[in-house]
Simulated scan of single mutants.
Amino acid sequence: MPRSDEDIANLLRWDEAAALHLDSPFYAVREVISGESSLSAIDSELLAGLGGRCLHPMCHIGTDTVSVARTFSEVVGFDYSEKAVRIAGRTADRAGVRNCHFMAGDVAAIPVASACFDVVFLNWGSLVWIFDLPSVLVELRRVLRPGGHLVVVDQHPASLTFRRGFPPSLMVPVEDYFGERKISVDRKDYAERGADIRHTTVIEARHTMADILRSVLSVFRLVEFQEYDSLSWQAYSGMVVSGRRLWRRKSSPVPLSFSVVAQREPGTGIH
Rank of each mutant, 00 (worst) to 15 (best):
146 P>R: 09
252 S>D: 12
144 L>P: 02
223 V>A: 12
47 L>D: 00
264 R>E: 05
174 V>F: 04
141 R>Y: 03
211 D>C: 04
74 E>R: 14
61 I>V: 12
63 T>S: 12
266 P>D: 00
13 R>M: 02
33 I>Y: 10
76 V>W: 14
148 G>H: 05
5 D>Q: 14
243 G>E: 06
13 R>I: 11
191 A>H: 11
191 A>S: 15
239 M>C: 06
145 R>W: 03
266 P>F: 02
185 V>R: 14
250 K>L: 15
54 C>P: 01
3 R>N: 03
184 S>Y: 04
58 M>A: 13
255 P>Q: 13
44 S>R: 14
159 S>P: 01
93 D>H: 03
150 L>D: 07
111 P>A: 04
16 E>V: 06
265 E>T: 08
48 A>L: 13
246 L>G: 00
259 S>E: 10
217 L>G: 09
79 D>R: 07
31 E>F: 01
263 Q>D: 02
200 T>K: 15
107 V>S: 14
102 F>S: 10
5 D>C: 00
124 W>Y: 14
96 G>C: 07
55 L>W: 08
89 G>V: 07
36 E>V: 01
129 W>A: 12
144 L>S: 07
89 G>D: 12
83 K>P: 03
199 H>Y: 15
66 V>S: 05
90 R>N: 13
252 S>C: 04
158 A>V: 05
231 L>H: 00
169 S>G: 00
228 Y>E: 09
139 E>S: 08
227 E>I: 11
268 T>H: 07
166 F>V: 07
131 F>R: 12
61 I>G: 10
132 D>T: 09
228 Y>T: 00
133 L>T: 06
219 V>Q: 06
83 K>Q: 03
108 A>Q: 06
31 E>L: 10
143 V>P: 09
177 Y>R: 11
15 D>N: 15
238 G>S: 00
233 W>I: 06
187 R>Q: 08
8 I>D: 02
262 A>M: 11
181 R>F: 13
199 H>T: 02
144 L>E: 00
154 D>I: 00
25 P>H: 06
112 V>L: 13
103 M>D: 00
250 K>Y: 06
189 D>K: 01
146 P>V: 11
124 W>R: 11
1 M>W: 11
215 S>I: 04
34 S>R: 15
265 E>H: 01
196 D>S: 13
135 S>I: 04
11 L>A: 05
67 S>R: 10
1 M>G: 10
110 I>E: 05
26 F>P: 03
92 A>G: 04
88 A>K: 03
120 V>F: 14
15 D>C: 09
71 T>D: 12
152 V>K: 06
128 V>T: 11
68 V>G: 08
178 F>Y: 15
186 D>G: 11
231 L>G: 04
72 F>L: 04
4 S>V: 12
66 V>D: 11
227 E>T: 12
129 W>V: 01
88 A>G: 05
82 E>D: 06
30 R>S: 15
101 H>S: 15
19 A>F: 05
74 E>I: 01
116 C>Y: 03
86 R>K: 15
212 I>L: 10
175 E>S: 11
108 A>N: 07
26 F>K: 09
39 L>D: 03
191 A>N: 04
142 R>T: 07
111 P>S: 02
198 R>H: 13
270 I>R: 10
104 A>N: 06
65 T>P: 01
106 D>Q: 10
12 L>P: 01
157 P>L: 10
235 A>S: 14
37 S>E: 08
248 R>G: 07
